[in-house]
Design a protein around this nucleic acid. Structure first.
Lengths: 224, 224
DNA sequence: TTCTGTGAACTGATTCACAGCG
DNA sequence: CGCTGTGAATCAGTTCACAGAA
């Protein structure tokens, strides 16, 4: 019944708002206004009001935003009122680190499957914050995704095999992919992909170092 | 002697151009034109030409861009003609994964120090793609940063101590920080910070799943 | 009076379309 | 001719400034 045109940039800020609101809740603040919320997450009040206004009329004039209600609303917009089921593809250094990470569970995600190509690893039991799971074989990828009801795949495979994995995941019905390998994925329309590339981020940082070195230490801050 | 107004967005795309150019070089292509380069990195030709034009007149009309020369130029703009020295703060699951990752070395970075608070870990030898290094104690943070000549710090510490670490790093002269902990860092003007938050990315993906579920499987692709 | 919600103005980035170099 | 480099047009996102709800 409502709009669908929430700007891309606003969506990317919603998780930050959510984090700050949870923090406010811990501090027993029943209400926050746009100035406080902006302060907490490092934006400005106009931005906060504009962003939240895309989601509906969520505030009370003269008062501010009800913390509990706003948390519920943003969670709903982000689609994390129910826990989302994710899988880690590639049980290597990064894959292993992800499985042990408790931050996912705290933010609405559960790792329900791990897949690896190495026969030596298949069958291994892995301890995750939300339980113990066994490593599955790559050959069973499609079956495992379907049986575990995986909605999001986290690709932590070697670069060379990553596109192939993505193709199989899409064919198996996975519609959202977080790619940690340093390759650009090509996927059909309608599949959501997010690329995380630490080397890219380091290179951007390096650019700023190069800039500041050149003409006096006054310079660029933050990203975005 | 030249401009300093390369748009933020262009800078963030330079690493991708670099990656594609290295790939072109491997395929023995001496020259690429804007259409080919756009194809390779998933943009459009106008974008490529505009981006590269901010760096100078690097192409040859009627021909395209010399791959070798363009690699050299972009590397120079990104400040990675010399190897940049980075440190990993926090030798936990993620820190460990980073140290074993060979992608950094391939893209102009060298991990020259690891620091951890756990006395049991201090002194441990860690094998990295570019050699063996010993874990240093957090108490020695300032000295280690200075002696190793660290330019970029990668924060992989528990959220609760991350801001404190950032403060000490800045005080120790580090001017660029890649933060993997899910907290917003507050740093003085002139310090470059990049935030990587996997949970945030998952939440954005979840938003897209929620959207598509609502009104028919036609939908959002890619990030940015 | 206090603070939200929102048009209007502005800023920055992308795309278009073409002049002009090799 | 083919392709770059670039002004001009467009589009998206941010900031301003204020009307009006509580």
């Amino acid at each position: 019944m409502e709009r669908q045109s929430v700007p891309q940039t606003t969506i990317q800020r919603l998780p930050a708002y959510l984090r700050c609101l949870l923090q406010a809740q811990e501090q027993r603040m029943p209400v926050v206004n746009s100035v406080e919320l902006a302060e907490m997450c490092g934006t400005n009040a106009a931005q906060v009001r504009k962003d939240l206004s895309y989601l509906g009329e969520l505030g009370t004039r003269g008062i501010g935003y009800d913390v509990k209600a706003l948390i519920a609303h943003i969670s709903s917009v982000l689609g994390i009122t129910e826990r989302r089921r994710a899988a880690v593809i590639g049980y290597g250094r990064f894959g292993g680190a992800l499985l042990g990470y408790s931050g996912f569970a705290e933010r609405g995600f559960e790792i329900v499957a791990v897949v690896d190509a190495d026969p030596a690893k298949v069958g291994t039991l892995v301890q995750t914050p939300s339980g113990e799971i066994a490593v599955s074989a790559i050959d069973d990828l499609e079956r495992v995704m379907q049986e575990a009801g995986v909605e999001i795949a986290i690709l932590a495979t070697p670069a060379s095999v990553t596109q192939g994995m993505a193709d199989r995941l899409v064919a198996a019905g996975v519609r959202a992919i977080l790619n940690l390998a340093p390759v650009r994925l090509v996927v059909p329309e309608g599949i959501a992909v997010r690329q995380v590339c630490l080397s890219t981020d380091l290179q951007v940082l390096s650019f700023h170092l190069a800039q500041n070195a050149q003409h006096g230490p006054q310079g660029a801050d933050e990203q975005e």
